[in-house]
Amino acid sequence: MRSSGVAAMLLASVVTTTPALAQQQQPSVPLIAQGCAGCHGQNGAGQGATPPIAGTSRDEFIKIWAAFRANERPATIMNRIARGYTDAEVAALADHFAARR
Protein backbone atom coordinates (compact mmCIF):
# COMPACT_ATOMS: atom_id res chain seq x y z
CA MET A 1 0.00 0.00 0.00
CA ARG A 2 2.70 2.37 1.07
CA SER A 3 5.09 1.43 -1.72
CA SER A 4 2.37 1.77 -4.33
CA GLY A 5 1.75 5.26 -2.97
CA VAL A 6 5.41 6.09 -3.45
CA ALA A 7 5.31 4.58 -6.94
CA ALA A 8 2.30 6.70 -7.84
CA MET A 9 4.06 9.79 -6.53
CA LEU A 10 7.19 8.97 -8.54
CA LEU A 11 5.08 8.38 -11.64
CA ALA A 12 3.33 11.70 -11.09
CA SER A 13 6.63 13.51 -10.82
CA VAL A 14 7.88 11.87 -14.02
CA VAL A 15 4.85 12.81 -16.07
CA THR A 16 4.64 16.37 -14.80
CA THR A 17 8.30 17.37 -15.26
CA THR A 18 10.11 17.97 -18.50
CA PRO A 19 12.77 15.39 -19.43
CA ALA A 20 15.51 17.97 -18.82
CA LEU A 21 14.32 18.67 -15.31
CA ALA A 22 13.82 14.98 -14.52
CA GLN A 23 17.41 14.42 -15.55
CA GLN A 24 18.59 17.23 -13.29
CA GLN A 25 17.03 15.59 -10.27
CA GLN A 26 19.42 12.65 -10.30
CA PRO A 27 23.12 13.18 -9.62
CA SER A 28 25.04 12.92 -12.86
CA VAL A 29 27.82 10.98 -11.11
CA PRO A 30 27.09 7.67 -9.40
CA LEU A 31 27.41 8.18 -5.66
CA ILE A 32 29.62 5.10 -5.37
CA ALA A 33 32.31 6.86 -7.43
CA GLN A 34 32.38 9.81 -5.05
CA GLY A 35 34.60 7.99 -2.58
CA CYS A 36 37.40 7.78 -5.18
CA ALA A 37 37.63 11.59 -5.43
CA GLY A 38 39.18 11.79 -1.98
CA CYS A 39 42.50 10.47 -3.33
CA HIS A 40 42.35 10.14 -7.12
CA GLY A 41 41.35 13.75 -7.78
CA GLN A 42 38.29 15.15 -9.51
CA ASN A 43 36.63 12.62 -11.83
CA GLY A 44 39.57 10.26 -11.31
CA ALA A 45 41.99 12.61 -13.06
CA GLY A 46 44.83 11.67 -10.69
CA GLN A 47 46.47 13.79 -8.01
CA GLY A 48 50.17 14.02 -7.24
CA ALA A 49 51.58 10.52 -6.74
CA THR A 50 48.13 8.94 -6.91
CA PRO A 51 47.57 7.68 -10.45
CA PRO A 52 44.68 8.72 -12.70
CA ILE A 53 41.85 6.22 -13.16
CA ALA A 54 39.80 8.24 -15.66
CA GLY A 55 39.77 6.76 -19.13
CA THR A 56 40.68 3.25 -18.01
CA SER A 57 38.69 0.85 -20.18
CA ARG A 58 35.90 -1.05 -18.47
CA ASP A 59 37.55 -4.45 -18.88
CA GLU A 60 40.93 -3.21 -17.72
CA PHE A 61 39.39 -1.54 -14.67
CA ILE A 62 37.59 -4.74 -13.65
CA LYS A 63 40.72 -6.84 -14.28
CA ILE A 64 42.94 -4.55 -12.19
CA TRP A 65 40.37 -4.43 -9.40
CA ALA A 66 40.20 -8.25 -9.29
CA ALA A 67 44.00 -8.45 -9.14
CA PHE A 68 44.06 -6.01 -6.20
CA ARG A 69 41.36 -7.99 -4.46
CA ALA A 70 43.30 -11.24 -4.88
CA ASN A 71 46.61 -9.65 -3.79
CA GLU A 72 48.01 -10.46 -7.22
CA ARG A 73 49.09 -6.92 -8.01
CA PRO A 74 51.58 -4.80 -6.08
CA ALA A 75 49.60 -2.48 -3.83
CA THR A 76 49.95 -0.10 -0.92
CA ILE A 77 46.29 0.40 -0.04
CA MET A 78 44.17 -0.57 -3.07
CA ASN A 79 44.23 -4.26 -2.08
CA ARG A 80 42.55 -3.36 1.21
CA ILE A 81 40.04 -1.11 -0.53
CA ALA A 82 39.23 -3.55 -3.35
CA ARG A 83 37.95 -6.20 -0.94
CA GLY A 84 35.25 -3.83 0.31
CA TYR A 85 33.24 -3.57 -2.92
CA THR A 86 30.88 -6.03 -4.66
CA ASP A 87 31.23 -7.07 -8.29
CA ALA A 88 28.19 -4.97 -9.20
CA GLU A 89 29.72 -1.92 -7.52
CA VAL A 90 33.04 -2.46 -9.30
CA ALA A 91 31.19 -2.69 -12.62
CA ALA A 92 29.45 0.63 -11.90
CA LEU A 93 32.80 2.22 -11.08
CA ALA A 94 34.32 0.75 -14.23
CA ASP A 95 31.51 2.17 -16.39
CA HIS A 96 31.85 5.56 -14.78
CA PHE A 97 35.61 5.94 -15.08
CA ALA A 98 35.75 4.42 -18.59
CA ALA A 99 33.49 7.29 -19.68
CA ARG A 100 35.81 9.94 -18.16
CA ARG A 101 38.63 11.51 -20.11
Binding site: C39, H40, G41, Q47, T50, T76
Partner: peptide
Protein backbone atom coordinates in the same frame (compact mmCIF):
# COMPACT_ATOMS: atom_id res chain seq x y z
CA UNK B 1 55.41 1.05 1.13
CA UNK B 2 56.05 3.74 3.78
CA UNK B 3 57.47 6.20 1.25
CA UNK B 4 54.54 5.75 -1.13
CA UNK B 5 51.98 6.09 1.65
CA UNK B 6 53.55 9.40 2.70
CA UNK B 7 53.20 10.59 -0.92
CA UNK B 8 49.65 9.26 -1.16
CA UNK B 9 48.83 11.06 2.07
CA UNK B 10 49.91 14.33 0.43
CA UNK B 11 47.80 13.46 -2.63
CA UNK B 12 44.85 12.67 -0.37
CA UNK B 13 45.17 16.07 1.26
CA UNK B 14 45.20 17.87 -2.09
CA UNK B 15 42.29 15.78 -3.42
CA UNK B 16 40.04 16.08 -0.39
CA UNK B 17 40.63 19.83 -0.13
CA UNK B 18 39.73 20.18 -3.82
CA UNK B 19 36.60 18.06 -3.33
Amino acid sequence: QRRLEALYADAWYASIVED
